[in-house]
Amino acid sequence: MSARTGVKSFWSARGAGSSTAYRLATLAPVLVLVAIFTLFPFVYSAVTSTHQVLLTLPDQTPFIGLQNYLDVLRDSSTQNAIKNTLVFTLLTVPCVTVLGLAVALLLNQQIRGFGILRALVLLPWAIPLVSAGIIWRLLLHGDFGALNGLLLQLGVVHDYMSWLSSPNLAMYAVALAHIWREFPLPAILFLAGLQLIPGDIVDASRVDGAGLWARFRNITLPYLRAPLLIVLVYETMISVSVFDLVYVLTGGGPGSSTTLFSWYAYATTFTFLNPGQGAALSFIMAAFLLALIIMFLRIVRVDEGEA
């Protein structure tokens, strides 16, 4: 497989070796630090999730096998959180991907002044997620809020809408904030992909009379296959684990309408004081994401080999 040989030649590409001590000295600090903060949490979650741990009964933590997993999976609140997370992911990932692609196609045009746009596009992605969330809280607030003011002025609504405290709208509000925050990354990755398309292919196809759509389908999309896969997997991971936005925008509410999985795991531990089940939930999420991570690494590394 070409991917394998690519990786192999990468590792054999080297100069004269140096001492084991040097290798150890340069790698050990990083490996130890990363191991402590990734392996221990994994083991800890695994162990805790197989015990009954209730903060209300701190001295009794019997081993109960997979009972926590069975309990949480049977619980309708968990099913609700999974359903919400699924809805959120299905709302955001396609939007972020399509919007990112559209923005990349736009930024790829040689037009004076678009250099500034290419710089601006990083901004929503660079700021703290919490800040992005609070910005949207100010925009969507039910008692004032810029969106309400704007819609009132345009005559679209007659009274202020409570976007964040309406069970039907809150999910869309969180998704909207998430999309605004997340589209820059796909846009940048797609833009980089677009810039690799040789100009003469495009020109030749134009001479041959290929229309806009035909060029997009037959030239642009094939070139964007790898970034597209990466964006889809990566953005799914981001959407599935979103937490900060829920914290500042809705607190999981109203009711449990925006209780996404991360928030639910957090609430299970800290509001319902059940770390055993909280750990089981974390472990389920971590396992799911690990599968996505492995997929992600495969895509990226295959790509590396071909490069």
Binding site: T38, P41, Y44, S45, S241, S282, M285, L289, F296
Partner: peptide, 10 residues
């Protein structure tokens, strides 16, 4: 790429 919430308590 481990999500923060999955490892926050440990």
């Amino acid at each position: 790429l481990l999500p923060a919430m999955a490892v926050a308590i440990p």
